[in-house]
């Protein structure tokens, strides 16, 4: 089943790669290049999953997770964090703030697919 995914990622090259991979797997997706307005966009479009970069130029991905989790209406939105800082504590920090999953860049396609499958359940 097709899922709706919001990609929040400032690096164009990664965004291009993600666009290619998600399209190939048949997901409906949009991309935002900055963190500002991301929470409003999530409220408006209510995606199944947000693929969220931690290190955005304006707002930190952690702040967006915190805001999403502070809004009970967004309870069913899954958040998958991506970061180039792959330390264990970053993962714990993300999960403590309410993210549902965490993948470290560079990730392999199979790794991303497995995480998406886990978080979207039957929807992909």
């Amino acid at each position: 089943m097709m899922a709706s995914i919001l990609v929040v990622e400032d690096e164009d090259n990664i965004a291009t790669a993600l666009d290619f991979l998600l399209s190939r797997d048949g997901h409906k997706h949009r991309r935002m290049a900055t963190g500002a307005g991301a929470v409003d966009e999530i409220r408006a479009s209510h995606p199944d999953l947000v693929l969220l970069d931690v290190m955005l130029p304006d707002v930190s991905g952690y702040q967006i997770v915190q805001d999403v989790r502070a809004d009970p209406a967004l309870n069913d939105v899954r958040v998958l964090l991506m970061t180039a800082r792959g330390s264990v504590v970053e993962r714990r920090k993300g999960l403590a703030l309410g993210a549902d999953g965490f993948i470290a860049k560079p990730f392999e396609l199979s790794e991303l697919r497995a995480e998406l499958a886990r978080l979207l359940g039957g929807r992909c």
Binding site: V89, R92, A96, L97
Partner: peptide
């Protein structure tokens, strides 16, 4: 090799540093 984050629990806010 650690980090710090914010949490809310039991009506209290907290910063966590493992």
């Amino acid at each position: 090799a650690t980090g710090i984050w914010t949490e809310a629990r039991d009506g209290q806010a907290r910063l966590v540093l493992p």
